[in-house]
């Protein structure tokens, strides 16, 4: 718990924050509308006497009362995917459209990738990338279970992602050389997952954060480069540390061709603005447009999410 005390200065109600961090997280599933409508999935859960409650802000994101989703027919049929409630935000911010070319730079094990595919109606091209081959196998398993067919899976370091496999700089009319949208759900110190993994902070150190910030900046930079002008890049983490959030955005605003865009979190989901000052550092005022999610606001895990537009 110690590392989180550094956020007391950001939160007037730090006690409530701390208390929420100590509570276990409700088990949540998202309906995969590629295989069943929200109504059908909910009917089937009712028929199987699996108790749930829809979240205030999304009729297809359901909090289960008891057992995990693995033991029901709707789950077996791939109508449901176990996904932490707060983790449904970045795909909504990304707002991918059917037919577009979309990149998920850090995709495994695929909760957000599969949600993006659903939002795309399984049409267009979704590239799910991760540098960890073992985790990619989980991504493929999840995507196939959910019946997704528009996903290409790549195994590259996102910082140097190459379009070479997709025929860039060739004459092939099917080549792909830029994305319409990209999600960077970056590797991070995972402070916000404390409710799910009580030992999430055991390996916490400022040195670890400093190391990971370099990777986050590198991946975000590549995502901005690889996205066409006018396209959208979403940056998200499951951590509170401003070093990994606002500071990374501030760096991108300075170094790359992008601007932060306002994005409203879904109605009924409460977020806090990004912080513009931390530990004597000042950030670009635009980082305020980012969303901080604290566990006590909506009874979820912790999260950070910002929407950028590529300007050149």
């Amino acid at each position: 718990m110690q590392p989180l005390e550094r956020y007391a200065s950001l939160l007037a109600d730090y006690d409530a924050f701390q208390a929420a961090c100590e509570r276990p997280l409700p088990s949540v599933v998202r309906v995969n509308t590629l295989k069943a409508s929200i109504e059908r999935a909910r009917d089937a859960l009712d028929a199987a006497s699996v108790a749930y409650e829809a979240t205030d802000w999304h009729p297809g994101v359901l909090r289960l009362e008891e057992r995990g989703p693995g033991t029901s027919w709707p789950y077996f049929h791939g109508w449901l995917h176990g996904q932490e409630e707060v983790s449904a935000l970045p795909a909504l911010a990304l707002d991918p459209q059917p037919g577009e070319v979309v990149w998920d730079a850090c995709a495994a094990p695929g909760s957000k990738t599969t949600q993006i595919a659903d939002l795309m109606d399984d049409e267009g091209l979704l590239v799910g990338n991760d540098n960890n081959l073992g985790r990619l196998s989980a991504l493929r398993h999840n995507a196939e279970r959910l019946g997704i067919t528009n996903l290409a899976v790549t195994n590259q370091d996102a910082r140097n992602f190459s379009f070479k496999p997709f025929g860039d700089r060739s004459e092939d009319e099917k080549r792909i050389e830029a994305f319409d949208r990209a999600l960077v759900d970056a590797p991070c110190s995972c402070e916000g997952t404390i409710r799910k993994n009580p030992d999430a902070l055991e390996r916490w150190s400022m040195d670890h954060i400093k190391g990971i910030v370099g990777i986050q900046k590198g991946i975000l930079r590549r995502a901005i480069q690889a996205t066409r002008p006018g396209g959208t890049v979403v940056y998200s983490t499951c951590t509170f540390a401003p070093e990994e959030n606002e500071a990374v955005l501030d760096h991108a605003l300075e170094e790359a061709d992008c601007e932060i865009r306002e994005w409203d979190a879904p109605e009924g989901f409460e977020t806090d603005p990004g912080v513009t000052e931390w530990n004597g550092e000042e950030y670009d005022p635009a980082v305020e447009l980012a969303h901080r999610v604290y566990p006590h606001r909506n009874d979820t895990g912790g999260f950070f999410c910002a929407k950028l537009e590529v300007t050149a």
Binding site: D122, E123, G124, L125, G128, L133, L136, L139, R140, A143, E144, G147, I148, T149, N150, L151, A152, V153, T154, N155, P165, F166, G167, S170, D172, K174, R175, I176
Partner: peptide, 19 residues
């Protein structure tokens, strides 16, 4: 594999649609 898009062939990736 069945794939909902079309891309260059051959393509050296880890997965392409659904087996």
């Amino acid at each position: 594999w069945a794939f909902a898009a079309d891309v260059v062939s051959p393509i050296p990736v880890e997965g392409l649609g659904l087996r």
